[in-house]
């Protein structure tokens, strides 16, 4: 197992280097500079700004300088927000985004697997069609529609929950978490249904049933363990995605998370911020894929065996 983890960590280095390099040059090649403004920018001011952010240096020197800073964990100052560093901005939004993402993931896993398992127990009956149709709607319903819809009903009409904010008053976390979770829930439901269908037709399930075990023990103890492997594989990258924040949900609900930075940085040509958020997201993806793989190995004895004796 340790060997497996080490191997995967080594693999991550070239992946991240490619991401950093490609992003670094792509943003600089994109038309429109960070200091383009509606009002004319005097040349001496432009020169001063470029010098301040090292844009007056040759591209190669900028690149090497960036890599050096990156190794020290320094993403540099934001171009758009001159008083803030990119590190500060990312880490100021991360706790909120992580909390929201965690709720969304929990909702998605709990509701999604429940629906998926229920559907898989009686395939092609109403018990299957009903949750799966709901899941289909969930996949199709975009959050920019669902969010305002939920807000209108529960926030404005019923006045059960506040229409914006995060952590100011009890209840303001419910709708954003539900909105963010909807798509993931639907996806998890479909994945777990598929996984369960496959597992429940296996021989060892028949054996379990033959032993006279109650059906729920068969499903929960023997079925879920194998049936949820696709869900686990999905949950890793999904959580990484959730941790990068959701522009739409954060904007609709006025949540001070990370998601808005991603989109705004690109519009603002905030080079360091684009780099910072991209690298951060890449690290998350790599890390959570690794965690998902570890979980999959732990759940699946066949894989465990494979990594104990690495193939020649």
């Amino acid at each position: 197992m340790l060997r497996f983890i080490l191997y995967r960590l080594l693999q991550a280095i070239p992946v991240l280097l490619v991401v950093v390099t490609a992003t670094f040059f792509l943003v600089r090649l994109a038309p429109g500079g960070p200091f383009s403004a509606e009002k004319a920018v005097p040349p001496e001011v432009l020169r001063a700004l470029e010098a301040r952010y090292h844009l007056d240096q040759p591209m190669s020197a900028q690149y090497l300088g960036y890599l050096r800073d990156l190794l020290h964990g320094d993403f540099g100052p934001s171009f758009r927000y001159p008083g803030r560093s990119v590190d500060e901005m990312i880490f100021s939004g991360l706790p909120t985004t992580a909390e929201l993402g965690l709720y969304a993931l929990l909702i998605a896993l709990v509701l999604g697997t429940t629906a998926g398992v229920i559907a898989a127990l009686r395939p092609n009956t109403t018990q299957d069609y009903l949750p799966m149709s709901a899941a289909m709607v969930g996949v199709c319903l975009p959050s920019f529609l669902l969010g305002p819809l939920l807000l209108l009903v529960f926030g404005v009409w019923l006045e059960w929950v506040p229409v914006s904010g995060w952590g100011n008053v009890p209840g303001d976390k419910i709708l954003p978490a539900l909105t963010l979770a909807s798509g993931y829930t639907a996806y998890v439901a479909r994945l777990s249904r598929g996984g369960m269908l496959e597992v429940m037709s296996q021989d060892y399930i028949r054996t379990a049933r033959a032993k006279g075990l109650p059906e729920w023990v068969v499903v929960v103890k023997h079925g879920l363990r194998g049936g949820l492997i696709p869900v686990v594989a999905f949950a890793g990258p999904a959580f990484a995605g959730l941790l990068s924040g959701s522009f739409v949900v954060e904007t609709i609900f006025q949540i001070p998370g990370l998601g808005r930075f991603y989109v705004q940085a690109a519009f603002n040509r905030d080079y360091t911020m684009i780099m910072g958020t991209t690298v951060f997201f890449a690290v998350l993806i790599v890390a959570f894929n690794l965690l998902a793989d570890i979980a999959a190995v732990w759940l699946n004895p066949r894989l465990r065996h494979q990594y104990r004796k690495p193939a020649a």
């Binding site: 305002p148 926030g155 404005v156 006045e159 229409v163 609709i252 808005r260």
Partner: peptide, 13 residues
């Protein structure tokens, strides 16, 4: 509040 619809909802609430 960047989103004008969010802002209007906040006003209404």
């Amino acid at each position: 509040v960047e989103n004008v619809s969010t802002e209007e909802r906040m006003f209404r609430a």
